[in-house]
Amino acid sequence: MTPEDRTPPVPANAAGSGGPTTPEESTIVSAPAPPRADCIADSAGGLTFDLDAPGSGPDPSEPGHWTAALVLRRRGDDEAEEVRLPLAPDGEGRLRAVLPSTVALPEGRWDVYAAFADTEPRRLVPGLADLRSLVDRRPGPSTSPLAVRIPYATKHGNLSLRSWLRAPHAEAGDLHPDASGLTAHGRLHRVADPAAWLADAVVEARLRRAPGLVVTAPVTREKRADDAPAEEDGQDFSFTLDYARLAAEWRGGLDVWDLWLCPADGSEPARLARLLDDVVDKQQVFAYPGLPVDAEYAPAQAGPYYTTDNDLSVRIEERPPVAG
């Protein structure tokens, strides 16, 4: 609230004397709104930001506008990690910055600011986000790291980006949990020869509280879906993870098993994750039931879920009492 729109405070002892006066004369006097950025995503992982220029609009005769920049700052301990993108007039009276998929953005949460001339960067608020090309995204064949950036509004209403950068990447698809275990379908990206990479590969479930405790499941190579492009041949796989083997290690509380796709040759494994769409936080949207499992220790339930980083894990925990 700015000082201008404050009405004089009512003294405590004035209660009952009619209350504050002239509310009808109050007017809205607000602080200058934070700059708002529209964002358009392309299917290759690039983002375009469009925002109104401060003041009355960009004036080509005003060289100050040419020094404007979009500033991305990674959240975390390392204050210095920053990416600056030029913010230039788009010819239609607005300013535009482009973040191509080729600009590497390490994984994490990036807060988005605009800096005009030499002023302190101002945090942007999200405007319109056209992310339709991220829905059902199918990245083409390549061996360079897969870049995923999803813009979102923070809980305080500011603009941030969630970024992932992975090679290889194991995209989780349909999940079929049942009482005996989890059957999952996935697609491997960003390796030179997916079919060879998947030959004799396994899925490792790694217990988070006890590194080194690993349960493996064989991986089956799948035919690509009828509607998938031919170049995706050899990328699809599935596996079934037996809940009983996970439950055998359970001693109450919450056990989280992180799932990794591991090639037979011992080279770099891929964390199973769901990244190729427009949903920044999968956990609530791609939700799956926890089902009762037989654990030696006590009644338990098991189910797959997506972590805050949208990686796929399985949780074993206490079975809630049956209602009613």
Partner: peptide
């Protein structure tokens, strides 16, 4: 469009009228 209000219920602000006896 001009926007104004008749009763202020912004908690924690000096104009708050939710504690008015009326």
């Amino acid at each position: 469009v001009r926007l104004r209000h008749l009763v202020d219920l912004r908690k924690g602000t000096p104009g708050y009228e939710g504690d008015d006896p009326e």
